[in-house]
Design a protein around this nucleic acid. Structure first.
Lengths: 192, 192, 192, 192
DNA sequence: AATGAATGAGCATTCATTCAT
DNA sequence: GATGAATGAATGCTCATTCAT
């Protein structure tokens, strides 16, 4: 309906992503999704037998897109700091360009759905982050505190930057803010 | 029902707080709230004409409780660093003791409801934080970057610590983690 | 809607009885029942939380009405034969006057619902029949075969008479057919 | 799917018979039937344009099987009583061995579908019974009451016996119960 | 003010049927 | 003929909200 979709399954996921982020899971009827996707109500249930299945599938897709965006150009970087800096910037830029997908992912942090989805599984896609952190701690470059905590702080601070930029319309200063916030976070995380 | 309530209005808010945090907004019927509060269904709507009104009122209450908890003992501290450190620890301890209320507040960060509630109003209660940050920047103790960004990073890192502790059952090491994470954050924020 | 109903619960049962017998359980939407009863869709579910609950309640009511109709005037009769003859006639006349209720009851014999309803419980209302049969066998008036079988044969033959009369429009000869069929069945059941 | 089927049409009927009896008409989706039959959903509708058509066809087949089973060995019997006795026993044994098919047939007695199927047509297959009854009445061996009534009583008593045996697990006493119930019914029907 | 029965729009899901391949 | 993806009307049930008592 919106645009030609290769197949209906993809159209449904795209519509879900859009509507779930705009309206929240529970405020988005499946009928609205199928309409937005340009398919019949029954078609949605052929591919996703349950609304919950649809939510979970959408989550996995979104998480995957984020993980891909974060690592663009990663292999070119040499030092640990440069790698983290690249990821830092990639993530912020992706978040600014895909605010809905990011918002959608955040819904899971505080929703009952989070328990139903294997945290483990979702985290596999971010193994590259865990690896980097482990490498940094081992090499004595990062503070020797709970690895998961470093991970969480990085992520949450990153989201904070995105939120601040988009909420206050600071897109013009994006590059400065990326750099400034990275220095701040990096100097906090790295061994003094 | 649960305990003797001064008046029905309070009973309703308490029931809301409990149920919303346990089950989420959309999964909590107003009928369940009125039952938990020990009042008739109609009574709830006398005080809160709309479910949305109830959600917003509950939000304000919870936010207020958080703000109070954060500032306990604040007047005793002298230096900026000590004040922020106190707030940092207060927040984490409160979050660990009131996980549901915290979760409830976080629901708003990514829910469509956030747009409906005056961000301004909610933020007034945290004026003490803004003041501290302003003071720190002015005095040259904190990095001179966007004030709101400092605020957001502080908050999000704080939540990250809480989440990590409760998710991984690290309550025993709470004090160390509070201290360690504060050093990390503070060294990031402060002027080198 | 149809007529003034003392209370909604009764109106719903009456509508159910009518529609279930006319259309079958599965071909009768709850919305149609509530409409026929002149209540809102939600009201039906206040009284009967599930369609199945409604079906079962309707069944119990109908069974009860039948049991009452069967025993009208029973205390006046003296001999076993007269008692059974009275019940025989009562049942046929009630069946002819309430064809839908009878049909409704028969639906249970061949429906999956029968397993869900305590056969025992339903049978309690017909204890007077079991007692009569037991009395007859003990007194040597009835053949000494499986009591339940006598019960079943009586019932099914009775229904056969009703069905035949109403299917073939033999209402004019009702009295003769009642008598004739009773003689037939009685001479079969009684000890020669 | 189950076993090799000569043609799809037969496979569909067999699947219908099985599933309709196990689950009832309305609780059996056509998709389930086509799956059980090992054909595509569309194929079913090539042979039976409507679910109702399929139900009716299945009914006719089942009725035919019953009629055949009832008359096995009938030509060997000489007297009227022996013929009826044979049919009596044949029917009970078939019913015990094919409880689901019998249940399926009974569904029609009290279902709205009965009006849609030509009673006449279904009855043609039981002409042998009508003939026997007519013969008996004419010869003065059976009571001179409404022929159809005799037919109905015979059938319903017969089903009552089957039901009683299978409900109470009396299979061991099948032969006695067949004989006992036949004596009972026959002495009722025959001219004293 | 308080009550809770009543309301009816709204929702997730099912399924008989169609039709392009 | 055969297939099975697609359709969309229909259904059981929920729940925010109203209002007579």
């Amino acid at each position: 309906m919106r645009e030609y979709q290769k197949d209906k399954k993809e159209a449904i996921i795209n519509a879900s992503l859009k509507l779930f982020t705009e309206r929240g899971f529970d405020n988005t009827p499946t009928s609205m999704i199928s309409q937005e996707a340009g398919v019949a109500t029954g078609t949605l249930f052929r591919y996703y037998p349950t609304k919950e299945d649809l939510i979970n599938s959408t989550y996995v897709i979104a998480k995957d897109r984020l993980a891909r965006a974060m690592t663009v150009g990663l292999s070119k970087e040499k030092t640990l700091e440069d790698k983290v800096r690249l990821i830092w910037g990639n993530t912020i830029r992706w978040g600014l360009q895909n605010p809905q997908e990011l918002l959608f992912l955040e819904q899971f942090l505080s929703s009952p759905y989070i328990t139903r989805i294997t945290e483990e599984e979702a985290m596999k896609k971010f193994a590259f982050m865990s690896d980097l952190i482990e490498e940094g701690v081992t090499a004595g470059k990062l503070r020797d505190i709970h690895r998961g905590l470093i991970f969480e702080i990085l992520f949450s601070a990153n989201r904070a930057v995105i939120r601040k930029i988009s909420t206050h319309g600071l897109e013009r200063q994006t590059d400065e803010l990326i750099d400034g916030s990275f220095e701040l976070v990096w100097s906090g995380l790295s061994r003094s």
